[in-house]
Amino acid sequence: MPKDVTILTGFLGSGKTTLLNALLNEQVGRRFALVENEFGEEGIDGELIVRPDVDITELSNGCLCCTLSNNLLDVLDALSQRQDSFDELIIETTGIADPANIAVPFMMVPAVQQAFTIKRVICLVDAELIEDQLRDTEEAIGQISFADVILINKTDRVSPDYLARLRTTLHEINPLAEVLVGHKDDYPIKALLAVVRDVAETTGIARLTPTRPNLPGAQSIPEPQAHSTEASPKAHHHRHSNLVSVSFRFTKSLDLTRLYHRLTTLLLFHGKDLYRIKGVIYDRSRAERWIVQSVGQTLTLVDGAPWQTEDDRLSRLVFIGRGLKTAELETMLGQCFSRDPDASPSDLLHQTPIL
Score class of each variant (00 low, 15 high):
181 V>D: 13
126 D>R: 10
128 E>Q: 13
142 G>T: 09
160 P>E: 12
138 E>Y: 08
119 K>S: 14
121 V>R: 01
165 R>N: 13
153 N>Q: 01
171 H>Y: 10
170 L>M: 13
133 Q>K: 11
141 I>S: 09
150 I>C: 06
135 R>P: 01
182 G>V: 11
155 T>P: 11
150 I>Q: 05
158 V>Y: 05
174 N>D: 12
175 P>C: 12
122 I>A: 04
149 V>N: 10
165 R>Q: 13
180 L>A: 07
116 F>P: 03
159 S>K: 14
162 Y>A: 15
155 T>K: 04
123 C>K: 03
178 E>S: 12
165 R>T: 06
162 Y>D: 13
115 A>T: 02
166 L>W: 06
176 L>S: 14
119 K>P: 00
179 V>M: 08
137 T>R: 14
149 V>L: 08
143 Q>W: 10
182 G>P: 11
117 T>P: 00
122 I>P: 03
147 A>I: 09
176 L>I: 04
182 G>R: 05
171 H>M: 11
132 D>V: 12
174 N>W: 09
151 L>G: 10
149 V>K: 05
170 L>Q: 14
158 V>A: 07
137 T>Q: 14
133 Q>F: 08
160 P>G: 11
151 L>S: 07
154 K>C: 10
156 D>H: 02
128 E>R: 12
120 R>Y: 00
178 E>D: 14
133 Q>S: 07
169 T>E: 10
132 D>E: 13
